[in-house]
Design a protein around this nucleic acid. Structure first.
Length: 306
DNA sequence: ACCCAGGATGGAA
DNA sequence: TTCCATCATGGG
């Protein structure tokens, strides 16, 4: 432990932080379904990053953060929100096609977060055949029952950290099923034990070759290509990885292969080559755009042909 | 009652 | 390879 009272800094610990940034939409970034622990509370977003409760607002050309306890530094939040990323530079790498352009126009300021690997893996293991609102509920229950309480402002409802692998590893399958995890319960339990016992190392996620890392994730029971790719993109920083779920599958089919029946291998190859080095970001734009449209129209109508 | 949800899996075609 | 039923559970 290093002392926190050394007079080495020019700034004091504080509970508020101000970071100038352009093109950052909290609504699109925190509400698009890439993470499950953020909640909109009036004009702000509240969540827990690691063991810290935080409230975020869009200020005047900046993101303004507020914590319950004074922070010596804010690198943890800067990293989690990817505030140093130049969004325009990413958008410049996108292919010039009308469907993606429309999605980008509709989801301005959508960013890809950097999540904690274990929380990301566990959350997406719970996502299989669930609606996002239900995934959020399962994760919230898991945190309330088995996660450590974290400091919150006076009078604020309690908040909890995501349970560590070791905390979940000691549970029973029945306890996880009581959180509505269903058939995912035994798989999550096995994954927690693998991480807790050191058989799966998530600390080096992003530091090893993509294919090796993907294979290690998919070796887990309950982790297939899609969930592995979500972890690689959202926690591993593999920006080019393009997770294909039912929504994106429809989008690819309708937008890029209309009235055809491309083989899955063709669609996958297309998704890996068409969208460039930040394909995962493009995927998130398509995903969120399609869901916003569908939800808003209360129908399953696809995007009309251009 | 019926269908679907940010899927994965084992077995059949 | 590709297709299919099955796995829990809640909401439309």
């Amino acid at each position: 432990m290093e002392p926190t009272n050394s007079a080495s800094s020019t700034h004091r610990a504080a509970t508020t932080w101000h970071w100038p940034v352009r093109d950052y939409s909290l609504d699109h970034t925190l509400g698009c379904g890439q993470a499950f622990r953020w909640t909109r509370v009036s004009d702000a977003w509240e969540g827990v990053v690691g063991t810290r409760w935080v409230r975020l607002r869009e200020g005047d050309g900046a993101i303004v953060a507020e914590t319950a306890e004074a922070q010596q530094d804010w690198d943890w939040l800067n990293e989690a929100l990817q505030l140093r990323v130049d969004l325009q530079a990413i958008l410049a790498t996108f292919p010039d096609d009308p469907a993606l352009a429309e999605a980008v126009a509709a989801c301005g300021g959508l960013r890809v977060l950097r999540q904690e690997p274990w929380e990301c893996l566990a959350s997406f293991m719970l996502s299989a055949t669930k609606q996002i609102v239900q995934i959020r509920q399962i994760v919230a229950t898991l945190c309330e029952r088995f996660g450590d309480a974290v400091a919150v402002p006076a009078g604020h409802p309690p908040a909890y950290a995501f349970p560590r692998p070791g905390q979940l590893a000691e549970l029973t399958e029945a306890q996880l099923r009581e959180c509505k995890a269903g058939f995912r319960a035994p798989r999550l339990l096995a994954a927690a034990r693998a991480v807790a016992e050191g058989r799966l190392d998530l600390d080096t996620l992003g530091q090893l070759p993509l294919d090796d890392t993907r294979a290690r994730l998919m070796a887990l029971d309950g982790v297939g290509r899609k969930i592995a790719d979500c972890v690689l993109l959202f926690a591993g920083g593999f920006d080019q990885v393009f997770p294909i779920d039912v929504w994106v599958l429809r989008a690819l089919h309708e937008l890029y292969f209309p009235r055809r029946r491309p083989r899955p291998s063709v669609l996958r190859h297309f998704s890996e080559t068409h969208f460039g080095p930040y394909g995962g970001h493009a995927q998130q734009y398509l995903f969120h755009y399609l869901r916003m449209r569908t939800r808003g129209n209360r129908s399953r109508t696809m995007i009309p042909a251009a």
